[in-house]
Structure formats: structure tokens, C-alpha cells
Amino acid sequence: MALNQILQYIFSGITVGSIYAFVAIGYNIIYNSTGIINFAQGEFVMLGGMIAYTFSNFMPLLPAIIAAILITAAIGGLIENVFIRRMRKTSVLGMIVITIGLSILIREFALSIWDEQIRALRFFTGNEISSVNILGARISPQVLWVLGVTLVLTAGLYFFLKFTLTGQAMRACSENPTAAKLCGIRTDRMVSLSFMVSAGIGALGGCVVSPLTQTHYAMGSDLAIKGFTVAILGGLGNPMSAVAAGILLGLIEAFSISILPMAYKDVISIIILLIVLVARPSGLFGSRSASALKDY
């Protein structure tokens, strides 16, 4: 294979992987503070793209995206307040089922607010036909935006969780909610915050990828499954490993296409997931001892 082709597959893999990562980060943040797998995560991505598209019709792109992130984050907070907080007595499994219900609800709302048509946010730089040449590989400038945003987001999240008081409080809730409460951390606020942050991150992802992948009211469920695979692959509970696992899975898929018919792409990713689950149930980058202490 020529160098430019290898590079082309790498870019393709990283782009797809970044999309998976956006969803997987959201899973992890909510899982950390609640132990819930929020299957409505894909819907946040869809809402981000849809809302930004609607606003972009009468305002510049940047404010439209910011508005989309804020509104989606507010929806995330609202969901936590209305459904999750009031049902805390339900088992974790029950809560997961609730999130599946919520994802269907959001999808149906989106169908009636917008319609069944596909929409695409306009390109941040250039348009549908512009492409950048990097060492013989050609990519859309939007791919660079996706990569850049993923990078900044990952770094930002790392610093937030590691060095800010709020971030540390969020981590404390995930390590041990009771101890966190004893230290004076308002755990319920942290849960609210985690829903808002992961909804906002999902919306940001939805905006950045929309020019490339397009936005459709029913796109959430497919994203949710792929994002879930990535979250498990990386090890639940660690947003950073989700990014690594997402990009890894994207690359594996891209190179599998280069050798095998594309129809086998998902088979390969599922086989890898199964192998990881058997050999390392805590995920590729997860800690074995930490996962032994968790419910799921």
C-alpha cells in the first residue's frame, strides 16, 4: 500500500473514531457520577446538530453552535432533574431502562419539531468540495476541525477533572459517593452537572461532525451503540481512555475495509469487543482493581 493511501485510511479512521469518542466521553462522565449508562447520549449529539442547524439559518455559525450546546446542556440538566433525581430509589438497571425510554422520547420530539429530512450544518471552513492535501492524502478541512475539537476537548476535560475543585468533586462522587457527601460535596448537584456536561459535549460533537455526517432525527440510536462499544472497550469510567479507544476502533475499522469487504467492518469491531471483554473485562485502559469495586 502506498504511503498516501495508508495516511488516507488513518485520517478516515481517526475521523470516525472521534465521532465515537464524543459519545463515549458522555457515557463515561454520567457513569462516573451515577453508575448509570445513559443510552440517550446519542440523542444529545442529534439535538446539538439539529438545534445548531436551526439557529444557523438566522445567525452566524459560532453563536448558533454555542446556543445549541447551552440548550442541549439545559435539556440534559432538565432530564436529570425531572427523571433521574426523582427515581434514585430505582435500581441502576431500572435507571438504564429509563434512559432508553428517554432516548425514544427525545427522538419522537425531534421528529415532530423538525421532520424526517436529513440536515447538514454548513462547513466551518470551505465547503463540500474543498479538500486539504497532507502528504498526498486528501481530507476535508472539516476533518481538521473534528480532530482539533477532539484534542482541545480531551485536554480541557483532563484539566477540568484533575485540577479544578469542581472536577475533583465530580471525581470524588464517582470514587465514593458517601465519602464525598461526608466531605461536604453536594453529590446531587454533581450528578446534575455531569448530565449537563455530557449533554453539552454530545451537542458540541453533533455540531462539529454535522457537515460531514449530516444530522437526522434517528441517528442517535446507532451512535449510542457504537459509543457504548467504545466506552466498554476503553474501560468504563475513564473519559480519556474513551478517546483512545474510539480512535483505535476507528482505525481498526478503516484498515479492515482496506483488506476485507466493508460489510465485515462491524463484525470485526464486535469480535474485538468480545475478545477484550473476555480477556480484560475492565477494558483496554481500565484498572482491574477499580472495576472490581464497581456495580457494572
Binding site: 493511501q5 470516525v16 465521532i19 441517528m219 446507532d222 475495509i257 482496506s258 466493508m262
Partner: peptide, 20 residues
């Protein structure tokens, strides 16, 4: 000849293959 999943969001990899 290639077929892709109906929910595919990025097809650059398969097009790269065809292009070769």
C-alpha cells in the same frame, strides 16, 4: 463491489479502496 451499513456516516475508507 462494496456494500456499507445503512447508518454509515463516513465512507472515505471504502472510497479510498475503490480509488486504488
Amino acid at each position: 463491489k462494496e456494500s456499507y451499513d445503512k447508518a454509515s456516516t463516513d465512507l472515505t475508507a471504502v472510497l479510498t479502496k475503490l480509488n486504488a
